[in-house]
Simulated assay, not measured.
Amino acid sequence: MGRAGNGTRVCALGVAGVLAGTVLVGCGDGGDSGDDAQGSSAKTSAGAQEQGTRAVRSAYDRTAEEDTAKVRLKVRTSAQGTSQTANGQGAVDLDDGDSVMTLTMQGQQIEQRVVDRILYQKMPKGQAPGGKPWIKIDLGKVAAQQGSGDQSMSDPAQSAAYAKAITDKDVTEKGTDTIDGVKTTHYRVLVDVAELPNGDTLRRQVGPTLPMDVWLDDEGRMRRQQIDMTVKSPAATQRSSTDASSAPEKVTVRTVMDFTDFGTEVEADAPPAGQVTDMTGKALEQGKRQS
């Protein structure tokens, strides 16, 4: 597979992780609140902070209570002065993490399904290994290897626990925005990386905190989530250990995930077994190299 194909797969796997985590752990764009969003001035009073903290903590449960939603997202990966953007749209079951999505990157499309914590991807023609149209990766096994446990891939209550660890000083109300015609309140949240699955490894890669932005509607539901994340490329780190003059490559990932049409129907079915190549072993090997 060529360079562009590898980039597509990296973005796609990142998207799968977000969806399998049922909305709640993503990577987003901290600087772009959308073409249709107009921000108001930030509020900084102690009362507003307390109210914002309560709103953010409860948003995860209130969103998950809707059971399903349509999802639209944008993932931009930048490194060494170049960037690639993947766009996706589909639907997610907020209760069990199942999802269906179509991803588009550099004119190529990937059909993606997450069923019972198994990721299936139908790669562009000629790019799938094994001569079969679909690949699959057991996300539960990947999560277990990373020390995040299987529950974090599908249990909204487990993911909501991350938000409940946020204190008043971690939440700032930034104003009001309109997203897809819906009035929302915008909050900036500093997420303690130690509270996330595989927190020790993440802390080494991205630092102690991640800035996350969320937009909540009048019913307290998530309408947009985004985080900026800059990580040190594992491959570049390995090169720099043998070449002192080679600086580690920084990779910046920006994702914006929007939720609409709560209660929409989600039909996520596994493709026929004979059309699928299991890539879980290779994913686990790659995880060991990056740890």
Rank of each mutant, 00 (worst) to 15 (best):
S33H: 14
K250W: 04
K141M: 10
R254V: 12
M1I: 10
V71G: 00
A69H: 03
Q225W: 09
G28R: 04
S33T: 11
Q51R: 13
T260Y: 00
T209C: 00
V142P: 05
K132T: 12
R224V: 09
A69G: 05
P248N: 13
S291Y: 06
R3C: 08
L196P: 00
V231Y: 08
C27S: 13
G21L: 03
D98E: 07
P271E: 08
A273L: 00
E265A: 12
K141L: 13
V251K: 13
V25S: 03
V191W: 03
M1L: 07
V56K: 00
D200C: 05
K70I: 04
V15N: 02
G7W: 10
R224N: 05
D168E: 15
T172C: 06
Q290L: 03
G14K: 08
M123R: 12
G126E: 12
P271Y: 10
T242H: 11
T184V: 14
M101K: 10
T82F: 09
V15T: 07
R3H: 14
F259I: 01
G263E: 02
T230F: 02
V10Y: 01
T63N: 07
S241K: 12
V182F: 02
E66Q: 15
A236S: 14
A69W: 07
V191L: 07
M105K: 07
R57L: 04
T252K: 13
E265W: 05
T104R: 01
E173G: 03
M229H: 07
N87H: 08
H186K: 08
D61V: 14
S83P: 00
M279N: 08
G140R: 14
A268Y: 04
P271C: 12
Q49A: 14
R117K: 14
A157Q: 13
K70S: 15
S99N: 05
Y162G: 05
E173H: 05
P234L: 02
T85M: 09
Q275E: 15
S233Y: 06
A283D: 08
R9D: 09
D200E: 13
S148Q: 08
R76I: 09
A16D: 11
T185E: 01
V10D: 11
G31Y: 12
S154N: 08
E249P: 00
V191F: 06
T68A: 10
E249W: 06
L13R: 13
V251G: 10
D95G: 08
K122N: 09
K282L: 03
P156D: 03
H186D: 09
A194Q: 08
A91Q: 11
S83Y: 09
R72F: 11
N198C: 10
P156I: 01
G281P: 05
R239N: 02
L284D: 10
V266H: 01
G181K: 08
T252L: 10
Q49Y: 06
I118F: 02
I137W: 01
